[in-house]
């Protein structure tokens, strides 16, 4: 295996950091895709979500695991852009101010065509800590465009407590990661999003998580 900065960063920094600050309780890790192309979709509450989802994969797969992230946020400044591209390997998407003719998901499609395991947050943003928000239609379009690609839903809990939007210092909390069965796409948009939402809710119901208020 060739040396990769990303793998070294995960082995030496991310995994030890997550072990101390969070620590995971993973259910059904065997349901995670073992090869690409695949879409891993998760609820989104924290920057830690991406790191946790990526570190669920073994080192040999890590180079092909790529999270979709907002270009306007992660490519904003030089150091953050370098970090996002070299150490994480994000697929940047343009959320705001793009031309009407531009396909916002072109880069994601290309990554799937190249057999990547793509991490996608259908809510589009982190939002309120530990609350689920309405999903954007992006995941529906992606799944319709790539009908053969497995969509694996993952429910995350606790990371929004550890590092919510707007917080600077992480507070240690154990987190739960519940991996679901692959999702069977529905051909109509609203029905698709409703069905996916139900999947997240039933995964959430496997644990007992009181509202965090």
């Amino acid at each position: 295996m060739r040396f990769s900065l990303k793998r070294a960063f995960f082995a030496l920094v991310v995994r030890p950091f997550l072990l101390v600050v969070t620590g995971f309780n993973v259910r059904h890790a065997e349901r995670l895709p073992q090869s690409g192309p695949a879409l891993v979709v998760a609820n989104h509450n924290s920057h830690l979500d991406t790191l946790v989802l990526m570190s669920l994969f073994p080192a040999r797969l890590l180079d092909r695991v790529r999270p979709v992230a907002a270009a306007d946020y992660f490519l904003k400044s030089g150091p953050l852009a370098w970090f996002s591209q070299k150490l994480i390997g994000i697929i940047p998407v343009t959320r705001v101010g793009r031309a009407a003719s531009e396909d916002p998901l072109a880069a994601v499609s290309a990554a799937l065509d190249a057999s990547s395991i793509v991490i996608f947050f259908p809510e589009g943003t982190r939002g309120e800590p530990e609350r689920f928000q309405e999903m954007k239609s992006g995941i529906f379009h992606l799944s319709r465009r790539h009908p053969g690609v497995k969509v694996v839903p993952v429910f995350l809990h606790g990371l929004g407590k550890a590092l919510p939007k707007g917080a600077f210092l992480p507070v240690p909390f154990f987190c739960d990661v519940f991996v679901g069965e692959p999702f069977d796409p529905v051909s109509e948009k609203d029905a698709f999003l409703a069905a996916l939402k139900t999947r997240f809710e039933s995964l959430r119901a496997e644990g007992s998580f009181p509202e965090w208020v």
């Binding site: 620590g23 800590p129 407590k161 240690p172 154990f174």
Partner: peptide, 19 residues
């Protein structure tokens, strides 16, 4: 301690206290 604080219900306002 981490296990305990993750187990009990905590208030969102107390995040800073936990630090």
């Amino acid at each position: 301690l981490k296990e305990y604080l993750s187990l009990i219900p905590t208030r969102r306002a107390d995040r800073g206290v936990l630090l």
